[in-house]
């Protein structure tokens, strides 16, 4: 599903975020990328979603060489991924339902079918009752659950999350971790970058240290 072959990423003016990295994550696998701040976790996930391009090596996602993708092909790659960001990236002028609907609107889903999918996703993360609420009215944990609902509404086969529990208290973080676990159990491959790999004891751990596999 994800293959990194001698991948390097260098930021100007010559900072090596990932000097040379090799690993593979299979279909339906649950992997945690752990490491201290600045270890290269976020960079690695950005390379998977083509938010960044590798400086060297090959990144394969679902068999596609992400680094060689043309600019106009990148959106179609991202539509097959579920992305959850540390800062959620919710739209605060739209309600919960509209936020979760966004990926389906982008993909041009018929409204009735899209609404069904959105409600199903909100139900899975326990936000169906709050579909009309604005994000500002949600707690940190609820905002993160909304971000997860938005990530899975497209029914991707790969869910990627960057520090999804970073700003949450321990109890809320455990709830959010359970949601990822639930999605993994229905066959979705999950890759979570986190400093707290203890939240996902059953997941395969890929530890990073200064951009190298530890």
């Amino acid at each position: 599903m994800i293959q990194f072959k001698h991948v390097s990423k260098r930021y100007p003016p010559g900072i090596d975020a990932l000097p040379d990295i090799d690993f593979e994550i299979g279909d339906g696998e649950f992997a945690v990328i752990s490491g201290h701040s600045g270890a290269g976790k976020s960079t690695l996930l950005k390379l998977v979603a083509a938010i960044e391009r590798p400086t060297g090596g090959v990144v394969l996602v679902n068999g596609q060489n992400v680094g060689a993708l043309k600019r106009n092909a990148v959106p179609y790659l991202r539509r097959n991924l579920g992305l959850v960001f540390q800062d959620q990236k919710l739209l605060f002028d739209r309600n919960v339902f509209e936020n979760a609907m966004l990926p389906l609107s982008i993909a041009g889903f018929p409204p009735r079918e899209a609404a069904k999918r959105v409600r199903a996703a909100l139900d899975k993360v326990g936000l169906l009752e709050r579909e009309k609420a604005m994000p500002i009215a949600l707690s940190g944990g609820e905002q993160q659950r909304l971000a997860i609902a938005r990530a899975v509404v497209n029914r991707p086969n790969l869910l990627i999350a960057d520090e999804p529990t970073a700003h949450l208290d321990h109890e809320t973080a455990r709830d959010v971790a359970q949601i990822f676990r639930d999605f993994h159990q229905v066959g979705v491959a999950v890759v979570v970058a986190t400093y707290d790999s203890g939240l996902f004891p059953e997941a395969r751990r890929i530890a990073l240290n200064h951009g190298r596999l530890a």
Partner: peptide, 16 residues
Amino acid sequence: RQEIEVSRLLGATDAY
């Protein structure tokens, strides 16, 4: 700006 950035991350094309 934020909506544009989020939409791009979620797979929006330039045309969209």
